[in-house]
Computed example of a mutant assay.
Amino acid sequence: MAQNIRVQHTEPRRFLQPASGYLQDYDYTLNPFVGCVFACKYCYVRAMPIARFHEGQWGNYVDVKQLDSASFTRELIAARKRGAVRIFMSSSTDPYQPIEYREQRSRTLLEQMVAHADLVDFLFIQTRSPLVTRDIDLLQALAQRVMVSMTIETDLEDVRRRFTPYAPPLPKRYEALRTLRDNGILTQVAVSPVLPASDHFASSLRNLADYVVIDDYFMGDGASGKRTKQLHVEELYTPDEIENWYQPHAYQKTLTQFQTIFPAEQVYVSRMGFLPPADRK
């Protein structure tokens, strides 16, 4: 079923928001949009106030934050005066969802960070969109100050369509990872959340990422799985999958598979895998 997307432009008080909770090791979160048309059925943001108290159904609206470049530069300067500037983009939206093709909000923010790179310690980009490859020129300019983490929860396209019908197909994400890495961009695969997958999942990603992070609902939704449970995601699983994949211990099978293929120092679990690489232990 096609989405009927309502787009509006809003005036944010600021772009850089103090990081907290699951992302407390960052200094700021940066969300160019409110809402996300990928509308992943398991997305814990659906159960958060930003979605629950917004007009419209999650996935059917996007608020594009109006950007004044000079104002954002002042935000960066003020942030530097307070201390470190480690930014997570994005915590409650995808910075490269389809509206970005037209609005180029994420690209403009990147341009400002490149222009003032001395004010940015590290930028972590979390996305599931191949559109991120459009900005390779800017990512290269940030060099080791940026990492792109690509969400790939499964290697089974039928599972992807069941849980995230509006998200980019898996082959396109694989291709994007390869392009990023071939162009010298630090990359990560975020198996987040762990979904039903084949025994060849890890091997299919060999040589495509510098790091891998394994996460699930119970560790990663900020409420020990309670937010996700409100979404009734268990109804998306077959009875066999419930037993094998929707349990607090299920991630360990996927973790073992990736640890067999990737060096131990490249594979992380939950929150640790979303930190800047220099802060991982």
Rank of each mutant, 00 (worst) to 15 (best):
F218Q: 01
D182H: 15
E175I: 05
V191R: 02
W245V: 02
Q230A: 10
Y166R: 10
V267R: 02
T260Q: 14
T179H: 11
M150Y: 04
D240I: 06
N207T: 11
L205T: 04
I214G: 01
D155P: 04
P196C: 13
I185Y: 05
Y217M: 07
Y268K: 04
Q188A: 14
L255K: 05
I214R: 01
V267K: 00
S198E: 09
L170W: 00
L156P: 01
V233D: 02
A176G: 10
S204I: 05
V159I: 15
Q252Y: 09
P248C: 09
Q247K: 13
Y166M: 09
D215Q: 10
V189N: 05
L170R: 01
A167P: 04
T151N: 09
S270C: 11
L177G: 00
V269H: 11
F218L: 05
Q247F: 03
A202T: 06
R178S: 11
A190R: 06
E241I: 02
L255G: 03
V194F: 08
T187E: 07
E175P: 04
P171C: 12
T154C: 08
P196L: 09
T151A: 14
E241C: 06
S270V: 08
P171A: 12
A190H: 07
Q259A: 05
Y251S: 03
Q257A: 14
V191M: 09
P193S: 11
F262R: 00
K253C: 03
F258C: 03
R161D: 11
A197E: 08
E157R: 08
L208I: 08
I152P: 00
M219D: 06
S192F: 08
G184H: 14
Y237S: 03
L177C: 06
D210Q: 08
L156A: 12
H200P: 01
F163E: 07
T254F: 02
I152C: 02
T238Q: 09
M219Y: 12
T260R: 15
I185V: 15
E235P: 01
A190C: 12
T238D: 07
S203I: 14
T164I: 11
L231F: 04
F218W: 14
E175N: 11
T254C: 07
W245H: 01
A176P: 00
T254M: 03
P248H: 08
S203P: 05
Y217R: 01
K226N: 08
Y246Q: 04
E235F: 06
E235Y: 09
S204N: 14
F258A: 03
V191K: 03
P171N: 11
P196T: 14
S192H: 10
A176W: 00
P171V: 12
R161K: 15
A250I: 02
Y237M: 05
T254Q: 03
Y237Q: 04
R181N: 05
P171S: 13
D199W: 10
L236H: 02
A202Q: 03
R173H: 07
L231S: 02
R161M: 12
Y174F: 15
L236C: 04
F262P: 00
E243T: 14
E157N: 11
S192N: 13
L205I: 10
Y237L: 03
E241V: 02
Y166F: 15
A250S: 12
V191D: 04
